[in-house]
Nucleic acid binder design. Structure first.
Length: 426
RNA sequence: GUGGGCGUAGCUCAGUUGGUUAGAGCGCCAGGUUGUGGUCCUGGAAGUCGGGGGUUCAAAUCCCCUCGUCCACCCCA
């Protein structure tokens, strides 16, 4: 085994106790908000059949799969949770009572180059609502994101949501640009998601490429790119067919978010389309206002996904909120807890003669739910106290020959230094 | 993928006109007498100077290759 093999693979992390405590703190916040919103937690295997993730719209995510073949089966590590959740919903579609709210904290894998806040492995707070077609679902989801941000003390103005609607774009294009090829809409979205990266010209090139999946006329591509420039909902709506349902929904969503008290934290941005093919309606991204980091969270509505998996059509919306970018943001602001250890008690028998009594004391404390370190071996008292201090133990239970003789245990409070005695348990 | 920075003890790093046994702080271990921590003092262990090759009497120091890491770009959630 070479030295290289002794390191964690590139882009992956080891979690030592301090780091795992920080991670669990964040996960605890995710779970707390999920609980407040009435979400049930679910889980699924990190390994799935590759076909679950391979869609045909040229999504980058498909090219970044960790995949392999074993005994003739093509398997892949999940790059995102939504397909697995959809699979679970499909399997019980006949008996699930809708709408349902499910959350999960999956580890996801993507083989890609690393930058700040992006690794090959990360955890995601995934929240989905199944069986609700109206934007009341999106409003609830987006509100949960804001509550999470508040819960971890991110300053209110530091993070905002940009949102748009693929449905609005689709309605706008259906009668014109995509009149003869409505089925190319998903592929078109995957292309225009690259706007930030390759610019309007690049997007237009891809949209018109004869070898591409969309194949628009130059004037149509120009129209699409210009549409993406809208930052005002009214302007975008003006170009939609009259009576556009998507426009009405979008405006209702803004009203709802106002009612939730988050109106000032949401902006319309037509350039938000997301890179995944399955989104059909509202799409949104959470980003730091200073634009120093990558998107913190992204999500939207995917009413057709279950159908593509051979299930019934059940409307759904959800988001994935990564652990990496938010950790960077919190770390920059000194908002990550230090991950210090803590113990309720350390129990120390001076010698083997006192061990049985110490076991009884530790057992009684543990039965009451306390976190107890029963000292092993025969270290010196000085060492025991120093260790207890470093572990942030609240107190130390000392049982020496004198205490045992009197049937007592000496309890030292490490914060105050005060000592008292208690009778040993039977 | 391209360019650049970095890679010296567990951690953070110092160490250039190449020159005797490679350093500091923190951490770790052991002491400061017999049963009392956080401070302090003393001592100690610990480094193939990322790896390989080359130049040289002599390389942590110069050159080449390679791996790792970080940043930017490229690319992309």
């Amino acid at each position: 085994m070479s030295k290289n093999d002794l390191q964690a693979p590139r882009g992956t992390r080891d979690f030592y106790p301090e780091e795992l405590r920080q991670r669990e703190w964040l996960f605890g916040c995710f779970r707390e908000i999920g609980r407040r919103y009435g979400f049930e937690e679910v889980d699924a295997p990190v390994l799935e059949h590759e076909e679950l993730f391979t869609r045909k719209a040229g999504e980058e995510i498909v090219g970044q799969l960790y995949h392999f073949e074993l005994h003739g089966r093509r398997l892949a590590l999940r790059p995102e949770m939504t397909p697995s959740i959809a699979r679970m919903v499909r399997a019980r579609a006949g008996s699930l009572r809708l709408p349902l709210r499910w959350m999960s904290l999956p580890q996801c894998w993507r083989y890609e180059r690393m930058t700040r806040g992006r690794r090959r492995e990360h955890y995601q707070w995934n929240m989905d609502i199944w069986g609700e077609a109206s934007v009341t679902a999106e409003a609830e989801l987006i509100s949960a994101v804001f509550d999470l941000l508040d819960r971890v003390d991110v300053p209110r103005d530091d993070v905002k949501v940009r949102l748009s609607s693929r449905a609005l774009l689709e309605e706008t294009l259906r009668g014109t640009v995509l009149r003869d090829r409505p089925e190319r809409f998903a592929a078109l979205c995957v292309v225009i998601d690259k706007l930030d990266k390759i610019g309007g010209g690049g997007v237009a090139d891809l949209l018109t490429a004869t070898s591409g999946a969309v194949g628009l006329e130059a004037s149509d591509a120009k129209f699409v790119v210009e549409w993406l420039g809208h930052r005002n909902l009214a302007d975008a709506v003006r170009q939609a067919p009259s009576g556009s349902a998507a426009a009405e929904e979008l405006s209702r969503l803004f009203d709802l978010l106002e009612a939730y008290g988050h109106g000032d934290r949401v902006v319309f941005d037509a350039s938000v389309v997301r890179g995944l093919a399955y989104y059909t309606g509202v799409v949104f991204e959470v980003f730091d206002t200073a634009r120093e980091l990558r998107a913190i969270c992204g999500g939207g509505r995917y009413d057709g996904l279950l159908e593509t998996l051979g299930g019934p059509r059940i409307p759904a919306a959800g988001f994935g909120f990564g652990d990496a970018v938010i950790a960077e943001l919190l770390s920059d602001r000194g908002l990550l807890p230090d991950g210090a250890r803590s113990l309720d008690a350390v129990v120390f028998p001076f010698g083997d003669e006192q061990r049985a009594a110490a076991v009884a004391v530790a057992g009684a404390l543990r039965a009451r739910g306390q976190s107890v370190d029963l000292v092993l071996g025969r270290p010196k008292l000085k060492r025991v106290l120093a260790d207890a201090d470093r572990a942030n133990a609240a107190c130390v239970y000392l049982i020496g020959p004198d205490e045992l003789t009197r049937g007592e245990v000496l309890i030292r409070d490490l914060a105050t230094g005060e000592q008292r005695t208690e009778t040993l348990p039977d």
